[in-house]
Write a protein that binds this DNA or RNA. Structure first.
Lengths: 172, 172
DNA sequence: TCACCCATGTAAGGCGTTACATGATTGC
DNA sequence: GCAATCATGTAACGCCTTACATGGGTGA
């Protein structure tokens, strides 16, 4: 999976969620929940906002103290196209979910379904690795840390899958 | 937290675990479990190994087909110093744990204890955020994705904390 | 013989960080 | 008055990725 550029979409998402934001406000946003999944410093944010305005994804509004950015129609469709893109292994699930505000938004189910498939694969893969690598007690004792993180990863996937299935049921 | 350079320590850890590895073998290692927590391409690995040899962390051994690297005493102490460093918020818990082979290694308990403290803080912080941001039904319905990832994050921390506590008990 | 894996290397470029800068406003 | 926060910007630099290169071995 080629490394894709994420920051502009994150900015779109944030601005879309809040209506309008200044560069400074965006940098503050990263101190809250979004910061768990993405971060950017102001030295990235300001030039990026300018570029996105040039591209017609944003417009701005200056009150003399701050420049606030608002999302355009083009920006909105760009954001939704990005949210609809298939999830790779790039761990964008939580980040994208953060930007979906309405429970009935079809993108919500779309995202959960994709993530479920990915995690079921991962789970199967990890279980197979466990069997392959730790086929007896000696292997476990000689690589205990490895054993721990593998069993932990399996547990984590299991919980995540259960949560996804639960929430998918809840959407119907 | 200043971004620190991790790759050399990962290479030390891998070589220490396996006894000796070639650059190519290391790049293959990243396709397995370590790859969950760290990755490097061969264009990084080869020069880095050369640098580490210059620094006296590794020695090499050539069989005509491949160059194998072995860890030196200095390399071992460097690795252990890195493993003992306090965990920041840089998510190195699983990676470091992978490199600890012996259940009775004091670093094992050290790591688990640190991670537990970090996650208890995170858990408390997330619960407070939930109360602050989602104080009524309207907030939830208007930002459902945000609500989902926040409650999910809380669940995840809870499970992780329980697992850590369990394993810490098991070590005694 | 042709594709694929083994095996190692250099070069260009992008993303993101820290550091360097500047100035206004607000609270103690 | 002085520190902290608001607010925005540029510059240097490092890590990592992709792309470019090269060559030997092996199985269909």
């Amino acid at each position: 999976m080629p490394k894709r550029r994420i920051l502009p979409y994150v900015l779109l998402g944030l601005i879309n969620n809040k209506g309008k934001l200044s560069g400074y406000q965006i940098s503050q946003e990263f101190k809250n929940e979004v910061g768990e999944f993405w971060h950017a410093s102001h030295s990235q944010i300001y030039p990026e906002l300018a570029r996105m305005k040039t591209d017609g994804w944003l417009t701005d509004e200056d009150d003399g103290k701050s420049t606030y950015y608002l999302i355009t129609k083009l920006g909105q469709s760009t954001l939704r196209a990005w949210l609809a893109e298939p999830l790779n292994d790039d761990n964008l699930f939580s980040l994208k979910l953060y930007f979906i505000r309405d429970q009935k938004d079809p993108l919500m189910e779309h995202l959960l379904t994709q993530e479920l498939a990915i995690n079921q694969d991962k789970y199967a893969h990890l279980k197979k690795r466990l069997e392959t690598v730790f086929f007896n007690e000696a292997q476990i004792n000689e690589n205990y840390g490895h054993y721990l993180i593998l069993t932990r990863a399996i547990e984590r996937e299991k919980n995540h899958i259960a949560w996804l299935q639960n929430n998918l049921k809840g959407l119907v």
